[in-house]
């Protein structure tokens, strides 16, 4: 079977992942439509992207701006980042010293003096804590998505480019790790290596690089048979150069779209871990850990500990998904109206 045949497999078999819908994370199902179209039409025109840089950038921006929801989402994410990092500079709260905040006599619902969103049942100011926890949630979400994308892209490109037994072996490894329900593997890793912010970035990336590896491998299989790649090879270009200069730039649309969706998935995974009690260790916190602590207080009617932070998680995740949708439309030449 040649590589061109492989990339044209029908989406019938559950085992061929480049085109079939994929389950990501914990119970979150992602149906990557861009993967389906990519696999069905391996010969779709993509070559034009690299030549007209100025024009293509404008075109991408135009299509992206047509998605009102995505533009609003992007503005929301920027606001959220400002809120989490600049907010604490303006709005000073004690978020580290548990002893100090417990002594505060005004702990309680929103409106209590000096606490617009109230305090947690352990006395921390909720508004300030959402900023403080948001720093961790957003950092882990963005960085783990970045690490996962870089590792997955390199891995997938190597597998797809060199093919043969190396490809078979590398892709079996992906199958194997993907078959372990993500949350079980995450809990095992966090338990064995003790939770911390850098470790959470690594373990979440560690279970998330598999999907980009499959996507990029699929793209590579179809790209490496193109004439311009053949030409580079004929001129003496070696593997690393072809992968780095020709294959990855041509697959960049798929990669960027994946990375955007992955930020949402990573934030959700961290929130799930935090909710289960395996988030960043105290005195740090993250949104999932905050929600987990809030559940104890919910029975006493302390709703203000639940809703603001829960809504923050949902909105940020929705925003990244909208941005990803718009990026898919603007970066994937195939799906564009012309």
């Amino acid at each position: 079977m040649t590589s061109a045949d492989e990339s044209r497999e029908t989406p019938a078999f559950g085992v061929s992942a480049t085109e079939a819908p994929v389950a990501l994370g914990f119970g979150e199902l992602v149906v990557p439509e861009e993967a389906a179209t990519a696999a069905e039409q391996p010969a779709a025109p993509e070559g034009g992207e690299a030549q007209t840089t100025g024009g293509i950038a404008r075109q991408i921006a135009r299509v992206f701006l047509e998605h009102k929801l995505a533009v609003v989402s992007l503005a929301f994410i920027v606001l959220m980042i400002l809120f989490c990092w600049v907010g604490p500079l303006v709005y000073h709260t004690q978020q580290v010293n548990q002893q100090a905040v417990l002594l505060n006599i005004e702990n309680g619902p929103p409106g209590a003096t000096g606490h617009p969103l109230g305090t947690t049942n352990t006395g921390f100011d909720v508004l300030g804590r959402i900023m403080y926890g948001g720093q961790v949630s957003l950092t882990v979400g963005l960085l783990s998505a970045l690490v996962a994308t870089v590792v997955g892209v390199v891995y997938g490109a190597i597998a797809g480019f060199f093919g043969r037994w190396l490809d078979a072996f590398l892709m079996r490894v992906v199958d194997i790790v993907l078959s372990i329900p993500a949350l079980f593997l995450l809990i095992a890793l966090v338990t064995i290596f003790h939770s911390s912010e850098p470790l959470l970035i690594l373990v979440i990336a560690g279970i998330s690089w598999l999907i980009p590896a499959r996507l990029v491998r699929g793209e590579t299989l179809s790209l490496r048979t193109r004439e311009y790649v053949q030409a580079v090879r004929a001129m003496g270009g070696r593997g690393p150069r072809i992968i780095g200069r020709h294959i990855i730039p041509n697959a960049i649309g798929t990669i960027v779209v994946f990375a955007t969706f992955q930020v949402a998935t990573s934030i959700l995974l961290l929130a799930a871990l935090g909710f289960l009690g395996f988030g960043v260790p105290a005195p740090q916190t993250d949104w999932g850990t905050m929600l987990s602590n809030a559940v104890d207080a919910a029975a006493n009617g302390w709703w203000w500990e639940i809703y603001p932070v829960g809504i923050c998680i949902v909105l940020v995740v929705v925003a990244f998904n909208f941005i990803g949708d718009a990026l898919r439309d603007s970066l994937e030449v195939r799906t564009q109206r012309r």
Partner: peptide
């Protein structure tokens, strides 16, 4: 097919 592929995700959801 979707069901088969979704199983690991659903089982992860069961943890939550």
């Amino acid at each position: 097919t979707l069901l088969g592929l979704s199983l690991p995700g659903i089982v992860s959801g069961a943890v939550i």
